[in-house]
């Protein structure tokens, strides 16, 4: 028997595999394909204090080995989540991590406070890849100062473990991870999607109704692995890695590069049992390699000098 369990921000996960926000609905959608109890943790679709209707379509387009999405953070709002979705998730014996966002510091704080008061939410993941309407629509997570303000404001108002989800659309990801740590984050997760664009050459219009979208899937994986490596060198708090993970081997890359847990996103769409296959694959890898504890793998990267 190998030990797969890891500790993150005071949460004990039975294995280091979780779902990436926005790719697993509110859990129900995939519950007919697997036993959700097998997951390390479940991260639900991003929530805002008030419901959001999201962008017009097309919202998604496939690109080589990846996809662009501009869903526009459509969600039912924190209140409806607590009332309609949380009771289902509470039936399972796994940590529920609520992902949330806002378009102002007040909105972030409001969502965080309401989620913190809900029985059955075990941790918060704060999506800072959103534009700040009070600061010229600069994305919170791309400016260290704006980021500091919002993370500090949320940290003050919640006692739940706080994971800050970093934007990859920055020059120095290590710096951003450090800002999160200094503001009191219990962990950082990365990467969110990389901003991209696809053009229809006949109409000469962007394919997505929103013009630009976020790139995810296998295409982003090498960038994500590099950023996880850099972030994990910059901070002492745990790093949760994601971006293009499709197989157990992909997940292991992130763990070796320094991630204490990983999340699976776009791969769920292609293989609705991807998370389970990855858990099984990691266990098999460890057994085959004669490693008894997953924690021996984490951060074990042997840098070439």
């Amino acid at each position: 028997m190998v030990n797969l369990s890891v500790n993150i921000a005071g949460l004990r996960l039975k294995n280091p595999i979780m779902t990436a926000s926005g790719t697993f609905g509110y859990g129900e959608e995939y519950s007919e394909f697997m036993d959700l109890n097998r997951l390390g943790a479940i991260v639900a679709k991003g929530l805002s204090a008030a419901p959001r209707q999201g962008n017009p379509t097309p919202r998604i387009v496939e690109t080589p080995a990846g996809m662009l999405n501009a869903i526009g953070l459509q969600n039912i709002g924190v209140k409806a989540f607590i009332k309609e979705k949380l009771p289902f998730l509470k039936k399972f014996d796994i940590p529920v991590i609520a992902n949330f966002f806002g378009d102002s510091i007040d909105e972030y704080v409001k969502a965080a406070v309401e989620l913190s008061g809900a029985d059955g939410v075990h941790a918060l993941e704060m999506n800072i890849s959103c534009p700040n309407k009070q600061a010229g629509w600069i994305v919170f997570g791309t400016d260290p100062e704006i980021m500091e303000q919002v993370v500090k404001a949320v940290r003050k108002e919640t006692k739940l473990p706080l994971i800050v989800k970093l934007s990859p659309n920055v020059t120095d990801i290590g710096l951003m991870a450090k800002v999160a740590e200094d503001c009191g984050a219990d962990a950082v997760s990365l990467i969110n999607t990389i901003t991209g664009m696809a053009v229809d050459v006949k109409s000469r219009r962007p394919v997505l109704a929103n013009n630009t979208g976020g790139l995810s899937g296998p295409a982003v994986r090498p960038i994500a692995v590099r950023m996880v490596w850099e972030a994990s060198k910059a901070v002492k708090i745990p790093v949760i890695g994601m971006g293009g993970i499709t197989t157990a081997g992909d997940a292991l890359e992130f763990l070796i590069a320094g991630a204490r847990a990983v999340a699976v996103g776009t791969a769920n769409f292609i293989n609705p049992t991807a998370v389970i296959d990855i858990i099984d694959g990691i266990e098999k890898f460890l057994t085959d390699e004669g490693i008894s504890d997953i924690n021996e793998i984490i951060g074990s990267l042997k840098i070439r000098s």
């Binding site: 926005g22 790719t23 999201g54 097309p58 998604i60 999405n69 776009t266 769409f269 609705p272």
Partner: peptide
Amino acid sequence: EEHMACGVGACLGCVVK
């Protein structure tokens, strides 16, 4: 018809007004 990613209701990519 709408462009789909997951087909199972998880990604919210395929919506209609």
